[in-house]
Nucleic acid binder design. Structure first.
Length: 266
DNA sequence: ATGGCAGAAGCATTCTGA
């Protein structure tokens, strides 16, 4: 069966309900990871998932961050375990959720929705936090791969992996999201045999997942590709199609990010 | 060097994001 997996930094779930509904109806994903839900768990609008036939697990906080994983009940996807945060690392920000999923054909795999810190600027304490977060996320990834080789690690990584993923590489040279230090962190995940799924099928320039709200950045396609779906070897072998739903950035009241997606033949 | 745009909190303005 073909399973469509999508990741989207929605920049507030409550402010984005119309855009979310339109996207779900158009794109019809089976598994969804969202970031920056910006809502506490007691106020999480789970009904919009239920109404669309999804089950959802969420981990949020007030004002900032917040992540969730949803999956279509009709696709016979079952969730067997949920983990919030990175085990063994204390973090007061809600940035990671992991679900162990199984299909009707008994295929089992782990799915992570992650919102990597922005970092602000090189040398800022927030940058140190970003590097520490990425190091601990790598450790968690290694643990998950030991438990089950099939892993889908998706989210807003806040890293543009190469200059091909940047509209103006000279403008962004060694700036936050594009620095060699951050790119080295990203490569650490590829060393664990995780693939940057988008580049399996698309080596074109000008392919972005985020555009600044200001200065008509989307109109000029002045963006960055910082949202990624990383796939372990077994899932890479089963990846049939990839894409970025940039039309979602044209919605009324859009998120500044577009959803990224893969099709997996599981 | 700074703003520009947007959301949350909360009611004026600040904090955060990328």
């Amino acid at each position: 069966m073909i399973v469509k997996v999508a990741s989207w930094n929605i920049n507030s779930l409550r402010a984005r309900q119309d855009s979310f509904q339109k996207w779900i109806s158009d794109a019809k994903p089976d598994i969804v990871g969202l970031q920056e839900t910006k809502v506490t768990d007691d106020q999480f609008p789970a009904d919009i998932f239920f109404e669309n036939g999804f089950d959802v697990f969420f981990f949020g906080q007030k004002s900032y961050n917040g992540v969730c994983i949803a999956f279509k009940k009709i696709s016979s996807i079952k969730c067997e375990n949920v983990v919030m945060n990175i085990p063994g690392w204390k973090d007061d920000q809600a940035r990671v959720i992991m679900c162990s999923l199984s299909l009707a054909n008994s295929f089992r795999f782990n799915v992570v929705s992650v919102y990597v810190p922005n970092g602000n600027s090189l040398g800022d304490p927030k940058f140190t936090y970003k590097l520490s977060f990425l190091q601990n996320l790598k450790r968690f990834t290694q643990q998950l791969l030991k438990e089950n080789e099939s892993l889908c690690l998706m989210g807003d990584f806040n890293i543009a992996p190469t200059d091909l993923d940047v509209h103006d590489p000279d403008l962004w040279r060694e700036k936050i999201l594009c620095s060699s230090k951050e790119r080295e962190c990203f490569k650490q995940f590829e060393k664990l045999f995780l693939s940057d799924s988008f580049r399996l099928k698309n080596n074109e320039p000008n392919q972005y997942s985020w555009w600044d709200y200001r200065q008509g950045a989307f109109r000029r396609n002045a963006g960055l590709r910082i949202d990624h779906i990383l796939l372990s070897k077994s899932l890479t072998d089963r990846c049939t199609e990839v894409g970025i739903s940039s039309d979602v950035r044209k919605h009324e009241k859009p998120s500044d990010h577009a959803p990224v997606w893969v099709n997996l033949d599981l």
